[in-house]
């Protein structure tokens, strides 16, 4: 079998406002990446991107899915949600800008650093959103030296 073409896809349901189960999907993705034997820096970047994307669903959306598409060449994290959507994506990308409610901020979330963190960890980030329907985020991490 051609290892270079192998693809592993992980899918998780994420429930809005479920802070108890929050982060479990990202932890699973991180664990798999570690087991597969990716470079620790790649595991760290993908783990953080996945966690921030998962928490965005928990904080802002009604429900969604977090998935990881893993090949030898790249890791793609996709967060797709049903929720209020993002009216101004450029504004949402600015560090410090947040629409998270006070009780979420008290937990240490909603600092307006989630999307900038994902951007920093990823080699490519795409966000498509429709107000009143939901948001799809795609973060790509390219594996160097493949």
């Amino acid at each position: 079998m051609d290892r270079a073409k192998e693809e592993l896809v992980l899918n998780f349901q994420v429930q809005g406002r479920d802070f108890q189960g929050a982060g479990v999907a990202a932890s699973q993705i991180r664990r798999v990446l570690k087991q597969v034997g990716f470079d620790p820096q790649v595991v760290r970047r993908a783990g953080i991107a996945a966690y921030e994307a998962e928490m965005n669903i928990v904080i802002h959306a009604y429900r969604g899915t977090l998935s990881a598409r893993i090949t030898a060449q790249e890791i793609e994290i996709v967060a797709e949600d049903e929720g209020p959507g993002i009216a101004d994506i450029e504004l949402a990308m600015q560090e410090g800008y947040s629409t998270a409610p006070p009780e979420v901020r008290e937990m240490g979330f909603g600092a307006g650093m989630g999307l900038p963190n994902i951007k920093r960890c990823a080699d490519g980030l795409e966000i498509a959103s429709e107000v009143g329907r939901g948001t799809t985020l795609r973060a790509r991490i390219v594996i160097k030296g493949t």
Binding site: I48, M107, G108
Partner: peptide
Amino acid sequence: SDLLSDVMA
């Protein structure tokens, strides 16, 4: 830090 994203960053 008490901001979770700040810790990860």
